[in-house]
Simulated scan of single mutants.
Amino acid sequence: MRIRPIVAAGLVLLATACSSGSSQGTPPAPTPSAEPQDVSLKIPGIEVKKYRSPGHIEMPDRVAYDQSPPFGGYHDISWAACNGVVYTKAVRNENMVHSLEHGAVWIAYNPDTLPAAGVEALAKKVTGVPYMLMSPYPGLDKPISLQSWEHRLKLDDPADPRIDAFVSALKQNEFTHPEPGATCDNPSFDQDNPPSFDPSPAPAGSAPVGS
């Protein structure tokens, strides 16, 4: 296993801002600004976990992620292209997490529980939008899960206003991800045939998540 450490500071914390409550009528989060730096904490149901010292691995190595879907920690040296890509195949976690490090928002959905109309509605929010990507995630315990670096929000309804609030608060928020200004373009990443998602537990000797 080849681990390439990079520098990132943080403390270990797992928190839920508040209970999920009703999915209707939640006001959009304000645009990120220096005060406060992480306005996403106002979104009901959001999860936050800090990861310290994330680093890189290379295929076929894996990371022993502690969350599903993961939203921080060690990741592959190659990021999944995240310039408004709607993947039709489930994509390897390690590549998707690297996209989050660049400031992207990843919308994952359970293809068995989210109706086709819901998939289409979410795809409209992603297609062609810089720093957005979307993919199916088999076995997901909710129909929808949104990820940005160190942040996650699981939902049932594609019309839930918290989706837009999450994106507004966290996409390219320079205060909430390690690499502001990093690109989402990756010509070497095959968008039509990306590395496959592996639902099995990471084997012994995999890189620790870095929490």
Rank of each mutant, 00 (worst) to 15 (best):
L122H: 05
K142C: 11
I107Q: 02
G21Y: 06
G205C: 09
D61N: 10
H151N: 10
V105F: 04
T183D: 14
Y87R: 08
N95W: 03
T26E: 14
P69Y: 03
K89W: 03
L155A: 02
Y131M: 11
G118H: 09
Y74H: 13
D76F: 04
P158E: 05
P32M: 08
G55L: 05
C18T: 14
P44Y: 03
Q147R: 10
S148Q: 08
H75S: 15
K154R: 15
H98E: 08
S23N: 13
D61A: 14
S78V: 13
A202Q: 06
S200Y: 12
E35W: 06
V126A: 05
L14A: 13
M132N: 00
A169N: 03
Y131E: 07
T16E: 15
P32N: 05
I3F: 15
K171H: 07
P130H: 04
A104H: 03
A29H: 03
V7H: 14
I77D: 10
N95D: 12
N95E: 13
T26M: 13
S53H: 11
G103Q: 03
V85W: 00
L153D: 02
E179I: 08
S19R: 12
A207C: 14
D112Y: 10
S168P: 02
P187L: 08
W79S: 15
I43R: 01
G10L: 02
V48F: 13
F166D: 00
Q147P: 03
T31A: 15
P27V: 08
P180A: 10
I46W: 00
E94H: 04
Y131P: 01
F166I: 04
S200Q: 14
A207M: 12
Q24D: 15
L146K: 00
L146A: 00
E94W: 01
S99H: 01
F166K: 02
A9T: 13
Q147G: 10
G128K: 07
Y87W: 11
V86C: 14
Q37V: 11
P5Q: 09
E47A: 13
V12P: 04
P195R: 05
K171P: 02
D141H: 13
A64H: 09
G55D: 01
P199T: 09
S148H: 08
P27S: 11
T26W: 14
N186K: 07
Y87K: 08
A34E: 15
A81H: 05
A165Q: 02
D198G: 03
P178S: 10
N173H: 03
P138M: 09
S20V: 07
D141W: 12
A17C: 10
A81V: 05
N83K: 10
V91P: 04
N83P: 02
A123P: 04
S33I: 06
I107D: 01
A123N: 07
P178V: 07
P130T: 07
E174W: 06
K89H: 09
A123T: 04
E94D: 15
P115Y: 11
L170C: 04
D185G: 07
D66S: 11
Q172A: 12
G45L: 06
G181R: 04
T26F: 14
D198V: 12
Q37I: 09
M59R: 11
E35K: 11
T26C: 15
P69L: 05
L13P: 04
P30Q: 14
W106T: 00
D157S: 11
D198S: 08
A104F: 04
G45D: 05
Y109K: 06
